[in-house]
Design a protein around this nucleic acid. Structure first.
Lengths: 120, 120
DNA sequence: TTTATATATGAACAATTGTTCATGTGTTAA
DNA sequence: TTAACACATGAACAATTGTTCATATATAAA
């Protein structure tokens, strides 16, 4: 018996086959980590609200803070996270910095999320 | 001057217009909260790995724990979260409980996430 | 240069989260 | 009924996270 054949649910063959398929198709650890990190970004309603504003227009930090009724500092911290993960991009114009969406996937991902929670 | 006309970046008209558009298009608080909660589910690499296994087959808890090399307890806790959020469904067969994907959106959302992190 | 405005960021705090351990529930076989 | 197995779950702990406050940087105007 090979070392992977640990007994489990008394179904050793199925387990063997599964392990093989999963080893083939499962992305590597780094990619899985990055993927989870990406979704963590969407897992905060402040960041979601920021993105919904950016769906409509390119906006400066100050306007974001006022529109969402939050401290400028909190908005800046979140924008930093969004930018680090390439979900938004920024452009300076005088004293202001304008933020906008950086990626098409943002709309798709949030759209699919909306569809999911609007079911049944 | 109306009370919404707080000065910000010396661009009151733009701010006014933005507020109006955002108020129209922004989902209500409950929906935004639910949406963030949904994405939080995807924001953990253990749960992501569970979902990748379920992309391939319907699997029992024991096999999941062995395949992912984790404690059965940890897997059960995560499956509970996935089930509560309708991302997986379960079916008892004797002593075992088999889990499988409950929703098409799961593949799309994870697929879009993969596309995003695989860019540039 | 000084002042004011817009934004960024480090530290600190409360709140949330994922895992482990111990134990409980449900099912099957003896 | 008892024992064994598969899974679920509450409590506890460490680790992570989002906000606030204070302050730093950057730009523009005086």
């Amino acid at each position: 018996m090979e070392k992977n054949n640990i007994e489990c649910c008394e179904k050793i063959e199925v387990h063997e086959e599964l392990l093989k398929i999963v080893q083939e198709k499962m992305p590597d650890e780094v990619k899985l980590y990055d993927l989870a990190e990406l979704f963590k970004i969407f897992g905060d309603s402040t960041r979601i609200r920021i993105l919904f504003v950016l769906f409509e227009a390119e906006v400066c930090v100050c306007d974001l803070a006022q529109t969402l009724n939050m401290k400028q500092s909190a908005i800046s911290h979140q924008l930093r996270i969004l930018k680090q993960n390439k979900l938004v991009k920024s452009r300076r114009e005088g004293k202001s910095v304008f933020y906008s969406l950086a990626d098409q996937h943002v709309r798709t991902i949030i759209g699919q999320g909306m569809e999911h929670i609007e079911e049944d």
